[in-house]
């Protein structure tokens, strides 16, 4: 089975089978969209919540506000129906909690932005493993929509 690695800021997709994997989610949020009937899966690795004017050439998947619509468009392109899409989230951690640069950590801001956008598009979140202070690896099995989240020194979580 083919495994596609989704780097920071990227969006990748698969249909029918294959694994979409993102390694080393820290404050970033891994998002999966899945249409169970069309067997279409899309994964994004969101870096920051909002796109900025000083970053024109950024890939859409870098920011939540451009990434979520791009992911939906990609799912539809592969034959998914928007009303059947379901989302899962992992990541959004705060690896350096004592730095407290802002009242809300970047990880939390990312999670909130992603949730807000998904809700705006009417996409339910059916599983999540977010926040905390540890990094995560997320694997998305497109044949059945299962997502497994692993972390150092922790039991794997299925979401």
């Amino acid at each position: 089975m083919s495994e596609i690695f989704v780097n920071m800021g990227e969006i990748s997709s698969a249909k029918d089978h294959g694994i979409l994997t993102t390694v080393g989610l820290g404050s970033c949020v891994g998002v999966t969209l899945y249409d169970d009937r069309a067997k279409v899966g899309v994964m994004g690795h969101i870096f920051l919540p909002r796109s900025r004017p000083n970053d024109q050439g950024a890939p859409p998947g870098k920011y939540a506000d451009t990434g979520i619509p791009a992911m939906i468009a990609e799912a539809i392109r592969l034959g998914a129906s928007k009303i059947r899409l379901q989302a899962k989230l992992a990541g959004g951690a705060n690896l350096f909690p004592n730095l407290n640069m802002k009242s809300l950590s970047i990880g939390q801001q990312n999670v909130e932005a992603v949730k807000e956008l998904l809700s705006k598009h009417g996409i339910p979140i059916v599983g999540q493993d977010v926040a905390g202070n540890h990094g995560r690896k997320m694997r998305f099995f497109v044949e059945n929509g299962l997502v497994s989240v692993t972390a150092i020194g922790r039991e794997p979580v299925e979401i």
Partner: peptide, 18 residues
């Protein structure tokens, strides 16, 4: 300083996001 013991990818992207 903040300190993290974790996957290199998670540490690095948190630094870049910070």
């Amino acid at each position: 300083p903040g300190l993290a013991v974790d996957m290199a990818g998670a540490v690095w992207e948190s630094i870049l996001a910070g």
